[in-house]
Design a binder for these strands. Structure first.
Lengths: 229, 229
DNA sequence: CGTATCTTTGAGTCATGTCAAAAACGGTGG
DNA sequence: CCACCGTTTTTGACATGACTCAAAGATACG
């Protein structure tokens, strides 16, 4: 296996670019650093390339009106962002914003495309990422349509736990604002708030500051099944 | 350009498979015929391959509980279905059901994968399809979360018009049950019904039997913008 | 002509979003 | 160390959109 370009063990890009491509990648890539709240790109921006998250966490979200938005997914180290620019539309249909300090490596779209055209293994991986994202997206879409807020909160917490793991004392290992949690659930801030309270009452979760601990994962899971999925 | 294997002018598969692959494809493919209501595959089935719609219309949907489901998208002639099987999970996460008599050509997953691995143009097309589907899915996801039912109905009608066109007398060229229309908007049957009535009252659409005619597309579009997207 | 399926209507309920205000928190600078 | 200000959290009251249930018309169909 080729040496990593970007010193990240699980870098998506590096894993699938063979040796001959390494110099080209090294030349093509370009690093970005972002503080919490800064945007990698914004909805509507021309899609100039793809970003590989090197460090930190990015939320991928889509606006509605002036105030509301929906968080579609989170991307952490080793994950690719901006792949939607690969569609027919030449502009990003979503925004990507850092929710923890981020280092991302940018790869120009042209270079990315040319890599796709000669590296089948890499293409296959991109296809897999897209297919997985699409699966996830369609599942959440169904949930948004039919699952009540409480179940969606439960689902969101489980998703976060699976994606970010837990700390030594059991709390979900992500520092996320309630506002973002609400956006991720697809619910109003206050609704999320009340649901969190209910979950605490029912002893399914514990909260300390911003951190959340899942106390009874099975019960949470049951909330996501409801009508006997 | 290669001669079509399946005699369909816009067959996705044929457009991107070069001459050397034609015999192999011809050997690998397998035709299916379905009557209205029959399933191509069902949620949870092992993903054995990909289907190219040759004729007719298929709804791709995902169940919730025993009664409800959400229609994710429609696939018509020339479109590929089952691509979600390309993810990590080896089973279809959705169902595909004919809503008009269908002829589909099935391609074994193994063969499909091997085509991907040697035909970059084909891979690129698959990536494009997935990226477009993902974009559409995420847009609808946001709409489900924030847009009221009326706007979603408007959106659904416009989408159908764009996808299926209109007949000589202006009606959207698809024969779809109210039930399916409700599932496509992500609303209860009765809710959809009332919204359709409102839209008729407001002279934005006209209905004749099952057929729907968009009378004022701009007004419909305005319903989908609401908070000044 | 009777049975089944789909459409249409009404009434009632409930979940969820909205609004507004109080309380708690966190940092900043005097 | 405290007073101040902006932000986030918490609570309550309220409005209403959307779903549910049930029943009455239609329409199709054998």
């Amino acid at each position: 296996m080729a040496k990593n370009v970007c010193d990240l063990k699980s870098c998506f890009l590096c894993r699938f670019c063979l040796n001959d491509w390494l110099p080209a990648i090294a030349a093509a890539r370009q690093n970005f650093e972002l503080k919490r709240g800064q945007q990698l790109f914004n909805e509507g921006d021309p899609a100039k390339g793809i970003y590989f998250i090197y460090l930190g966490i990015v939320k991928v979200h889509k606006r509605w009106g002036r105030e509301k938005d929906l968080i579609l997914r989170f991307a952490k180290a080793g994950v690719v962002v901006g792949q939607l620019g690969l569609g027919d539309d030449a502009s990003y249909p979503v925004s990507a914003t850092a929710i923890a300090p981020v280092v991302a490596c940018f790869v120009d779209m042209e270079f990315f495309e040319s890599t796709l055209s000669v590296n089948a293994g890499f293409s296959r991986q991109v296809i897999k990422v897209l297919a997985n994202d699409l699966q996830e997206s369609e599942k959440r879409m169904r949930n948004l349509a039919h699952m009540p807020v409480k179940g969606r909160v439960a689902q969101a917490l489980i998703t976060l736990k699976n994606q970010f793991g837990i700390t030594a004392d059991g709390y979900i290992n992500i520092d996320i604002s309630r506002q973002d949690l609400a956006s991720f659930t697809g619910a109003a801030y206050e609704s999320l708030f009340r649901m969190i309270n209910e979950l605490i009452e029912e002893k399914l979760i514990t909260v300390s500051g911003k951190s959340i601990l899942i106390a009874d994962e099975n019960a949470l899971l049951r909330l996501t099944e409801d009508a006997g999925l």
